[in-house]
Design a binder for these strands. Sequence first.
DNA 1: GAGCACTGC
Length: 693
Amino acid sequence: MADFDLSANFIPSLHKPASLLPIARHRQNLLYLIETFPVTIVVGQTGSGKTTQIPQYLEQAGWCSDGKVIAVTQPRRVAATTVAVRVAEEVGCEVGKEVGYSIRFEDVTSAATRIKFLTDGLLLREALVDPLLSRYSVIMVDEAHERSLSTDVLLGVLKKILKRRPNDLRIIISSATLQAEDFLRFFMGDEDSQPKSNALSLDELISQGSSGPIDDGFGGKTGRIISLEGRMYPVDVLYLESPAENYVDKAVQTVFDIHTKEPDGDILVFLTGREEIDTAVQAISERAANLHPRAQQIMPLPLYAGLSTEQQMYIFEEAPENTRKVIFSTNIAEASITIDGILYVVDTGFVKLRAYNPLTGIETLTATPISKASATQRAGRAGRTKPGKCFRLYTEASYQALSEATIPEIQRSNLAPVILQLKALGIDNIARFDFITSPPAELVIRALELLYSLGALDDYAKLTKPLGTRMAELAVEPMMAKTLLSAPSFGCLSEILTIAAMTSLGGNVFFHHDGEKKKMETARRKFAVEEGDHITLLNVYQAFITKGQKGSKFCHDNFLNFKAMTRAVSIRAQLKRYLERFGLSVDETLSSNPNLQKPLTVGGKDKGEQIRRCLTSGFFAHAAKMQPDGTFRNVAGGTVLHAHPSSLMFNRKADWVIFHEVMETGTKTFIRDVTKIEKRWLVEYAPDFYKIS
DNA sequence: GAGCACTGC
């Protein structure tokens, strides 16, 4: 490109321009494929209109005529709601009438609803009640290429359902990348799963526009792949000639090069986390001060999930005159948040990924090289409004060495919740369940062991009744589910309900603006108790419902996250409904003690102790002992654990503790939500797990 | 002294 003189050490490489044909051209072909085959794989770029148009085509073609519903699943709640709103507008109805959505805590559907958007996790929940998902004539799984845990489980369940409903159910899998063949092969089943030796190439398999579907061997009677063009502009991709030593420095340098040498247009930089982003924003601010006052200015903005919605909104605002916006973002901008007006993407080539170590039971969070699919997705963010450029801060050889796609979550997660859910759906033999990608055996074994030790599974790995079935129905992780279900016998169900709701907020309870860290600490101390974090969280909730629920002032004064607290109220109410359905009554009078910082006694027993005993009955696998140096060791003794700085145990003395969560980041392993217990309780509540020594 | 992104009738 003639105007490219940014820096000699970038090598240009052209991206294939996408045409701008609308999806309407494919309408007849799409309907033909969906009518003819049980499974249709739709490969559609961003802006192809697949999510909004396909459900409408289906509805108009009569797929809802006998009162059936079209379901479209999304991996994220926001996507389900925003797409529903847009489609309702196009159809010309109110949301919740012909077009609706359903996400946890928000069911905006009615008897009139024909097109329903929902999260894939929620559709899986529906399968617990209606195992064949019989109210749906078509189920479209959107964004399947993201391969989230729920999407993968749902795909396996849908394949099973399809065998029972071969004639009246249609499945559409929509995916942005060319993993289409994998999805189709997955659904092809046993008869025709072996592609014939004369199998056609992928290009031939894809049914192109008006040329009509090809009736070759691949896909057999199962399905076809159709490709839709997106409304994307070409993006020039440029690589480094030699690797960068420090990608944060290199990113800052590249941003300045773009700023001084390239035409107007905002910049999006992909980094891995908050710390890097803050560093980069700081560096840009400092260097921006040296810009000539009359030269174009530069405005750095951070973007990560930990920011409040208000702070995230800044990135959508138009920059002041004569100012270029540069957004430093985590992976959140790769799929979850779309920003218009980006002409330049700077891709450092890294992402922080979660993984679960089945040997230690510890989750890790580490910066990892991205996949080619990710790199393509990131580059595409530069071509949404006009032709753009993507600067990859790695060499073309490094790019070639990247894996094709990110390892799906099902291969790197704690599978205890997944397996519990599958068992509840009547899938007993996990080893023979048809996963699109099988999880490693070690992960499955570890999960089965944990579920067995919690009493959710019997000696034959069958779900126990009622404990196992009830645990599966509760929307909390297995250890917390067990804690909740044993709470009645400790006389502290109301309190454990609150603790379950608060811990599921995931550390978002306290919240502070810049420079108010100390004040936040002081505020937190007001709720703190000797026993640890769990009862402290209980106190926070109690104070919130008695003083703070009506307005956000109480939260503001106490450095609490109002949105998170409101969510805790919803979660608690939902969990309570489940427990009452199980016939467990929740006595709320006991929990209204105004001063939990004083030891509570109920019926001669110390309430705080009952709560801690109850927590031990569910979290015995998460036990640790404090060492003289203030760190913790797990029971096996091998792993050094640190109390997370947000924990009360960060600077207090303890002996034995249980914790809600453990995660390794960088070089340290942190435990969060930590509560003191007695060693003998471990043996008392988990005699099989802790052999008496 | 500090955690990527999601999610559950």
